[in-house]
């Protein structure tokens, strides 16, 4: 199976911290479901018994950004919504990744209009684009597996200077 097969008799095995952390990270990705429109419904379907995202260790959809490491932007991002998406992204702790789900997030999709941002990469760093309008749930699962591959290759040294996101709590005496 997993780690057990690598263990020596006395319980030792040698690896790098990066490999171990990467393995741990990729097996329990906590997605932030940034559900905005149609794609959110397919994202819901991924959680349902038929497709069952729990098989890949990502069933823990947290609606608070501070507990998440993968943001799935699902749906059309308008100019009015963009600051909100950005703010939620800023609140996620490092390391963090972004999946742009669906044609709208990747390029504006069929909405070439005054109010739709033509691709969220104008204000967010995107790690993976997922085609479809909306993508089928199996497609999203495929994206998650691909993403896990990237996550497992994360190097801890890249985040030496990473800070926790600031908490803007209102404090008054």
């Amino acid at each position: 199976m997993g780690l057990e097969s690598l263990l020596k008799d006395n319980g030792f095995f040698t690896t790098t911290v990066d490999a171990l952390a990467g393995w741990a990270r990729k097996s329990s990705v906590w997605p932030m479901p940034m559900g905005i429109s149609c794609c959110a419904i397919e994202m819901m379907a991924v959680g349902d018994p038929k497709y069952d995202i729990a098989r890949f260790g990502s069933e823990v959809m947290r609606f608070t950004p501070r507990q998440c490491d993968l943001m799935i932007v699902a749906g059309t991002v308008t100019y009015k919504m963009a600051p909100v998406v950005r703010k939620i992204y800023d609140q996620m702790p490092e390391p963090k990744w972004v999946i742009a789900m669906g044609a709208c997030t990747a390029s504006g999709g069929i909405y070439r209009t005054y109010s739709v941002v033509q691709g969220i990469d104008q204000f967010l760093p995107v790690d993976l684009y997922l085609a479809g309008c909306p993508p089928r749930p199996d497609n999203l699962l495929n994206a998650l597996i691909t993403m896990q591959d990237k996550i497992s290759r994360t190097k801890a040294a890249d985040f030496k200077n990473a800070k926790l996101p600031e908490l803007n709590v209102i404090q008054k005496n």
Binding site: T76, T78, Y111, T113, Y114
Partner: peptide, 21 residues
């Protein structure tokens, strides 16, 4: 308005068929 996508403007700029999707 956080999901205002401008359907009515779009409809004025496309044919009746194109608006079905």
């Amino acid at each position: 308005g956080y999901l205002h996508r401008g359907y009515e403007k779009l409809a004025e700029n496309m044919t009746y068929y194109e608006f079905i999707p």
